[in-house]
């Protein structure tokens, strides 16, 4: 995995695991690799993985079972909630920045639409 050195590594690890959860690579209730294995796979420090997992356990997206390891929560509403939360977070960022460029809400919607259409064409 390639890291952006400007962003805290634990934050990027969390996003990486979120991504796997959203795309279903890590299904609800699935067991996560051992901490050291994760660290080796991602080429990061064991402590940093632990910090990322710790925060995720706190927010309830991951459950830690003593002696067994870490599991993605079986609470699918929690995952849905998380997805919603992440979407809102990203939208909020984009919205704030476009707003700062003095775009009205309507203009933001049209430019987003335009952007998506153009992007689709480029990929064809």
């Amino acid at each position: 995995m390639q890291f952006d050195d400007k962003v805290p590594i634990y934050y990027q690890i969390k996003n990486h695991i979120y991504h796997e959860m959203m795309t279903g690579q890590l299904a609800a209730g699935a067991k996560l690799p051992a901490v050291r294995q994760l660290a080796v796979d991602l080429t990061v420090n064991v402590n940093t993985v632990q910090r990322a997992l710790g925060e995720m356990i706190q927010e309830g997206t991951i459950e830690s079972q003593r002696g067994k390891g870490n599991f993605v929560t079986t609470d699918t509403t929690r995952i849905a909630q998380l997805k919603e939360q992440l979407v809102v977070e990203q939208l909020e960022r984009v919205y704030q920045q476009l707003h700062a460029l003095n775009l009205s809400d309507d203009e933001i919607i049209t430019s987003l639409k335009q952007y998506i259409e153009q992007r689709g064409q480029q990929h064809d």
Binding site: D5, K6, V7, I9, Y10
Partner: peptide, 15 residues
């Protein structure tokens, strides 16, 4: 801490 550099200054360790 390395992550505190990234959080506080918003730059990479090298920068």
């Amino acid at each position: 801490p390395a992550d505190s550099v990234r959080e506080e200054f918003g730059v990479g360790i090298e920068a």
